[in-house]
Design a binder for these strands. Structure first.
Lengths: 327, 327
DNA sequence: CGTTGTTGTTAGAGCGCTCTAAAGGACGAA
DNA sequence: TTCGTCCTTTAGAGCGCTCTAACAACAACG
């Protein structure tokens, strides 16, 4: 910086002003500084800048595992908006362990990130609260009370309602739900299923089959349903993987989808897109969730305000595994 | 830091030594400093540390799009090893545009990352060379000559050979390849296919159907093959998506897999894992590639050495879409 | 008893920037 | 001319750390 100042015949402070694109610098000097900087191949040092300005233009993101597409897409949304706004993303993963997650968080704080986004954190609430006291925090996907942090969560209730409105609108009444056990969103979807079935006065015809978020659980559920006297006309799976298991199980037994039974998934993942699957499912705007989390974070960095909860709306994607029941 | 020093009754320099876990500090003082640091809630400032030590313990990673599982898995591998070794990952995405990629890279360099990993970069070779002159660079997936950077690439030739050895070992001779057009790896797999067919003296029976990396291309290829007088006994698809299209197309036409025709994919993605698909395919160790890239980078940071090319070995995953041809 | 080493500790000069407060210039008004 | 105002520029004090070189303390040695 000193060198650039010398080459342009101005002070170091003026170079600083020009590099930060501040107003109140004469055009002539600005041009001279820019020219000198370019000529010398000067590259500002963001570390020094952060140290002096106490603003790192960096946000920390902690997530479980990048290899899980769900998290990767949220991270993608965060990164996308960050780069649009001139922010940098410092990444930390927790590898499914609260301890490693805490360590990651501590490191991010050492880097003096301007804020932190925690995607489905597994840490104890107290750890999150401690971080929130140091720096603005936004949580995605997990609700923790008593922590002064913003929240972005999916409206599972709405997602489930969309599914049931669709199925019931088609004329289905005997509807089964293969649940996701204790997995993320599982209990919520299950109870929303029961609630909305009752709301439609179909509480008596609702049937829940315990499962988990795997293809195998779906296949097992298909076998269980086939063993009973009469098949429900529609099955709502806890996620797309379960739906794939159901699809496979029914296919093997010669049961037609959607002729004999309609199937709905949840997640809109890779499988659902496949043309020869064409699964009707619930889509969660994951990229949007990432962007929203960063938006909240940056807003909170600038204007200290009370914490906020943002409910994200999922939407139904109708494909070819649902149809009206046989009359 | 000053405060900690005062509280522990030592100098600032000693606190620095303790925080960096340096030897030659008496146990007594070390304990006193640690205690004081903990009591005061002292958190070292990584920016200041980097500025003073000229070592940021940070590596930059640039990739196209986190939402693409291929890149996300590589990034996952990098992050995993980084956190094991106490390094931090600064992320930059290019969004499929060389211009944005360059901007991301420039920003990473402003943060004085110790090194940069470029995953399938789209930038011009000159830009990469310029970066490589400033900082150690490792490229993953793209080969650029005349750049002093390490390289991690997949051995497409080997992957293709594994597929053909498997098929030919089962007794197949009339084998078709649905290629991936100009997509990443497409041309390599295609030419390796022709080369190895010739090596097995089956050059005359090799058949290439032009395609691209989509399910639709696979379905179209199935239609094309079905329109011909006799079906090949095996089809090698350029990737799993294409294989899925083939599977769907053959299924619709009542052609049995692997009874009438065997199918092999490439990538070992989500689809291939599905139980009711069970696709035989080629697996690329993506997490391993990420780890390897970081290993090379860190090695290069410590010991300036000549650049190196690391060929990653894919492996064949045999599932249920391949079998011996009908006699 | 001085010399040489070894280990533990510290002063103080940076690292490359930002930011505050003040100085300098230009210009019109009194 | 003198003063006030506005705009532009600058000096210089940090930001929170590391690192070099020097220094103290003490043991070992001839």
């Amino acid at each position: 910086m000193e060198d650039v100042a010398q080459a342009a015949g101005v002070s170091r402070a003026l170079v600083s002003l020009v590099m930060r694109a501040q107003p109140n610098v004469s055009d002539e000097r600005r041009a001279r500084v820019l020219e000198a900087a370019h000529r010398l191949g000067y590259r500002p040092n963001a570390m020094a800048r952060s140290l002096a300005s106490r603003r790192s233009k960096t946000v920390g993101v902690i997530l479980d595992d990048l290899r899980n597409p769900f998290f990767a897409e949220i991270a993608g949304g965060i990164e996308e908006l960050a780069s649009e706004l001139g922010y940098q993303v410092l990444l930390g993963a927790g590898g499914r362990q609260a301890r490693r997650e805490r360590a990651s968080l501590a490191t991010l704080l050492e880097y003096r990130v301007d804020g932190v986004i925690l995607v489905s954190p597994r840490m104890r609430a107290a750890d999150i609260a401690a971080a929130a006291a140091e720096v603005p925090v936004v949580m995605v996907g997990r609700q923790v009370r008593g922590v002064d942090a913003d929240l972005v969560i999916i409206d599972e209730n709405l997602g489930t309602r969309l599914v049931l409105d669709h199925l019931i609108g088609l004329g289905h009444e005997r509807i089964a739900h293969v649940d996701g056990g204790k997995g993320a969103g599982g209990p919520q979807r299950r109870s929303a299923f029961l609630r909305w079935m009752r709301a439609h006065r179909l509480g008596a015809r609702a049937r829940v089959i315990p499962g988990e978020f795997t293809e195998e659980a779906g296949a097992a559920a298909a076998r269980a349903l086939l063993a009973e006297p009469d098949l429900p006309t529609a099955v709502f799976a806890a996620n797309d993987l379960v739906a794939a298991g159901l699809l496979g199980g029914f296919d093997q037994a010669g049961v037609e989808v959607p002729g004999d039974v309609s199937i709905v998934g949840y997640d809109n993942n890779f499988i659902a897109h496949l043309a020869h699957v064409g699964l009707t499912t619930v889509d969660q705007p994951r990229t949007e969730m990432g962007r929203m989390a960063l938006e909240l974070l940056l807003d909170r960095i600038d204007n200290r305000r009370a914490s906020v909860v943002r409910l994200v709306e999922p939407s139904l994607v109708v494909r070819s595994t649902t149809a009206a029941p046989r009359p």
